[in-house]
Write a protein that binds this DNA or RNA. Structure first.
Lengths: 126, 126
DNA sequence: CTACAAGTTAGAGTTGACTCTAAGTCAAGC
DNA sequence: GCTTGACTTAGAGTCAACTCTAACTTGTAG
């Protein structure tokens, strides 16, 4: 069981942000008798996944929706298909970002080549 | 020579945003006698480049810096090396985003595979 | 016990990038 | 000349995602 500062270091995220994610309904650590947050391995793994989704620009609202579906799932009402749909939607999104990045990387590389012809040999200056 | 609504359509960007970019020092169209903006091919090409940089999360401040270096360049003071450095920095950035997207794409694909095992055949329902 | 570092809260503030509004001015067809 | 739709401006408003503050409480090492 980790404290917030431990999780904060392990994920390179501020404690402020981690509390904010909890307020937004993305995390739900247990608490000590005194009310101090404690995180287990599964919450750490989940936070790491959330950070991945955020790094690829999935909005917090959509992540919350995924969480809510997960929590709402039961024997009488299975939400895994809806969660699958959310993941597929984000996957599409990620692929579009990839396409845009690849095109832009090429464009920048071309422009850099033009500049480098102007400065043929910027060699190591000691 | 294009009007603002024409380049707005050509680039799928609102006229609001195009004026905002001008206010931020990224664009400088000519004006008619009456003060109406007119854009030539070079400004259109440049706007398209700017939109690429934005789509890959280059901050407006940095794009402005690039513009300012370009405008400041003269025979006595060549700024092309500094511009090259800015481009290289963003290229690094784009490559990091690419790496993150690729990793995340894989993660999502794996998770999707798990969900699809739960729903082996969601076949066409009519 | 006590000191004090680390944790807690509600809520305010910040940042970057738009996005919109209102009150006008310009331009093109009739 | 007149109408009407597109254009102009300064500046206010919005939004997502943090980021910080202040006043207070908890946990732990000595």
């Amino acid at each position: 069981m980790y404290t917030i500062s431990e999780i904060s270091q392990l994920t390179e995220t501020t404690a402020h942000t981690i509390r904010y994610y909890e307020k937004e309904g993305l995390l739900f650590p247990t608490r000590t008798a005194g009310g101090v947050r404690r995180y287990d391995e599964s919450q750490l793994t989940w936070l790491r996944f959330v950070l991945r989704l955020r790094a690829t620009h999935m909005p917090i609202d959509q992540i919350r929706e995924y969480v809510e579906l997960f929590l709402a799932s039961s024997e009488t009402h299975d939400t895994s298909l809806e969660r699958l749909r959310l993941l597929e939607a984000h996957q599409q999104n990620v692929r579009q970002q990839l396409a845009e990045l690849i095109r832009t990387e090429q464009m920048i590389t071309e422009k850099i080549a033009v500049y480098q012809q102007l400065h043929p040999t910027v060699k190591e200056t000691i």
